[in-house]
């Protein structure tokens, strides 16, 4: 059965007629063609599908699209502003934290949700926060370093 759903994704309003049982991941990728959100295990184990819903990191593979109605959804495509990278994106580049890159959109969004709540984290807290995002390439080290770098930049920005 199809239902009408209003979604706000990266600040853009969408009105969609979709089956009620479709996941947010599926709708983002196949209806909105926002393929920056990745697909893999579909069981909320690997984290590549992480998006922000009202600022909270969620595995979009296990969230029904209808439940995201009325909430602010942010995907990796919505993170850079006017062509300027978010400090996390820039830090991931500068630190060499990107290899194949498939886990990176989810990783960056998990890190963003975390840094919004914990502006001055320890390495250990960062690792805990990212434990739901599998990366098979990097061994996580440069990712942790990039998140620390971004945290510093964001703290500076907040002070201004």
């Amino acid at each position: 059965m199809k239902v009408t759903v209003s979604l706000n994704v990266n600040g853009e309003a969408w009105e969609l007629s979709i089956e009620a049982d479709r996941t947010l991941l599926d709708v983002l990728r196949t209806e909105l063609m926002l393929t920056g959100t990745k697909t893999n295990c579909l069981e909320a184990e690997c984290g590549v599908c992480t998006v922000l819903v009202d600022g909270m990191a969620v595995n979009s593979c296990t969230v029904l699209a209808v439940t995201a109605q009325g909430r602010q959804i942010t995907t990796i495509e919505g993170l850079a502003r006017d062509g300027e990278l978010h400090p996390l994106q820039q830090a991931f580049i500068d630190r060499g934290a990107v290899q194949c890159g498939y886990c990176i959109p989810g990783m960056i969004l998990s890190a963003k949700a975390f840094l919004d709540e914990h502006p001055s984290p320890t390495d250990g807290q960062i690792r805990e926060a990212l434990a739901g995002n599998l990366c098979r390439c990097t061994g996580y080290q440069k990712i942790v370093d990039a998140v620390q770098d971004a945290a510093r930049v964001l703290r500076r920005e907040r002070r201004r």
């Binding site: 393929t35 920056g36 959100t37 995907t75 990278l85 994106q89 060499g96 990107v98 890159g101």
Partner: peptide
């Protein structure tokens, strides 16, 4: 030198197109 990889920007912005995409 520690030059950033050529595909870094595409990969952090979600614009790199993978086979799954």
């Amino acid at each position: 030198k520690r030059v950033p990889r050529v595909d870094a920007r595409a990969k952090v912005t979600g614009t790199a197109v993978f086979a799954a995409d």
